[in-house]
Every structure is written in C-alpha cells, then in structure tokens.
Design a protein around this nucleic acid. Structure first.
Lengths: 150, 150
DNA sequence: TATTGTTATACTCTATAACTATA
DNA sequence: TATAGTTATAGAGTATAACAATA
C-alpha cells in the first residue's frame, strides 16, 4: 500500500476488470445472433412473462421508461418483439416476443451458458460456489434486484 | 435450472450486477470532484509516471489512441493535465498532471478506498480475501492486465 | 390532474477509420 | 512508407425532461 492507494488495491477494480471481460466476450457472442446484451436481457424477461407493459419491464430491468422505449424500437425493427395497445386502457401498451424472437431465446441462453462456463470453468467447484455465494450476498446486501445490462 | 437457463443462473450476471453497482456509486462520488471514473484512472496512471506519451497510456488503460485523445481533451479543458511536444520527435506528445491535477489524485484515491470499504466491508476478512484471490486468478487466467474504466 | 409511453436531447464510453504532421 | 496523434463518425448505454394521449 503506497501513500496514495493504487487502482489495484481495490476489490472493485478487479471485479470491474473481470466483469467487463466477461460481458464484452458475451457481447461479441450475442452480436453474432444480431442482438446486444441489453436486448438479450429484454427478450429473456419477455420469454417468462409475455405480454408485459413497458413500465413493468423498466422496473424489472432497472431502466427508465425512455431506455425501454429505445430498446423496444430496436427489437421491433429487428422483428423480434411486437407492440400492441391494451384495449382496456389505451395509454398502456403491451410488449411480447414474436415467433422469431421466441425461437431465438434458447439459442441466446445457450451462449450465456457457454460464456459462463468459459470464464468460470477454470475455478474449482468449491471456489465457484463460494464466488456465487459472495456475489449474491453482496447483491442482496445492497438491495440490488434489477437486471444489469451493460 | 429450467429448460432455458435463467439470467440469474449465471455467475457473470451476478458479477455484472455487483460490479455495476460498485462502479456507479463510485462514479457518483468522483463526479462530486468533477471527474469521471475513466478520468480518474487516467490521472492515477500519470501520478505514478509523468510525463507519459498518449500511446503508452492507451496501452496501459486498454484504450485506443482516439479514446485517449478524447479523455485528454476533457482533462485539458478542466486544467488537470498538460500536453507538451517532445522536442526530439515532434510527432510525439507528452502528457502530465498539472499542479491542480496532482493535488486531486489523493482525494480521488480516498474516495476509491471509501467506496471499496462501503461495498466490501460487509464481508468477513476471510471472504474478502477469498474474493480478491479468485478475482485476481480469473483476471490472470484470461490475460487481463489493462485498467477497466467503465 | 395523474399516469403511460414516446420523443428529444445530452453525455460517457468505445471502436474504426480518415487525416495531419513528422520521421 | 511508417509512426504518433488527432479528428470524424458511429453506436450502445443511460439519464432527464418535454410532450401527447388517455384516464
């Protein structure tokens, strides 16, 4: 420890380094399927509960309404989701996966599995379990519950 | 584990979530000092070795030359660094901290210390050591050696 | 008036590629 | 021609705020 702490003295530094590497590699993999990581998270959320209003999706993903609108626009252009009006409340919209979108989700999930295995497969079972436990504890302690997308 | 793996099945998901929270909180703290996280990394690198050509800084930080130029422009405007010509090779430039910039580094380092303590202080000593060890091992295994900035 | 969404604007981070000046 | 750096352009991610339509 020098008088002025070094960047590498911080756990946050190493976490950011590893996290960025994992995410960037995953971004490259999903790019081959024509989507970004944020779009994958968006589609994965709809896969479980579909249709869903933009407001709920924003809450789930920890994004603003504006950010969700922008993501939705891109996915609409790609033909992966649909946007329909709610007849009961014409202010409200409903987002859902198209057939193409629904087909794509398992392929993207497989890429996520593969990416995780590549990065964390070098750990022993016990190390991997410990890492998962610590990360979940940290997330819970800070009240994190949204989906990070970058 | 469902047929299609969930986002939360992946260690990468949790790491991204925690890492983003730590980084975003740190970004808010350094914003109060008028700089971004990328600018802090930049200044911290110059604090140790000053002056330094943009090309070396790009290599250290894992950024392109263009990205370094842009960051340098912002720090110049803020009066935190200086850019001078190398008289031996007039293509080459040298970047160094100004007096103001040098004074600011220890304050920013203190914020980094504080941020790390806030987030990881909830872990036991043994957990914290294990986390550090695993993160460094993962970084080393993947050949990571640059400074993440986002 | 309050709420749901979209649109406009802006800024950071980052990359690629064109360009300038010098070697 | 090769190299150091800057500038131009672009796209993702994100936020705030103004706006439109509806309740």
């Amino acid at each position: 420890m020098t008088l002025v702490s070094d960047l590498t003295d911080h756990t946050g530094f190493w976490m950011r380094m590893v996290s960025n590497a994992v995410s960037q590699e995953f971004a490259r993999k999903v790019a081959a399927e024509g989507v970004t990581v944020a779009e994958w998270s968006f589609m994965r959320a709809l896969y479980d509960q579909d249709p869903m209003p933009p407001s709920v999706l924003a809450d789930r993903m920890g994004l603003t309404k504006g950010a969700v609108s922008k993501l939705a626009d891109r996915l609409l252009t790609k033909g992966l989701i649909e946007r329909t009006e709610n007849p009961r409340d014409k202010r409200a919209h409903r987002l859902s996966l198209t057939g193409d979108g629904r087909v794509k989700v398992p392929a993207l999930a497989a890429l996520a599995d593969e990416n995780d295995a590549t990065y964390f497969g070098v750990l022993s079972k016990s190390e991997h379990d410990t890492l998962n436990r610590i990360l979940r504890a940290l997330a819970e302690r800070r009240g994190l519950k949204t989906t990070p997308v970058d």
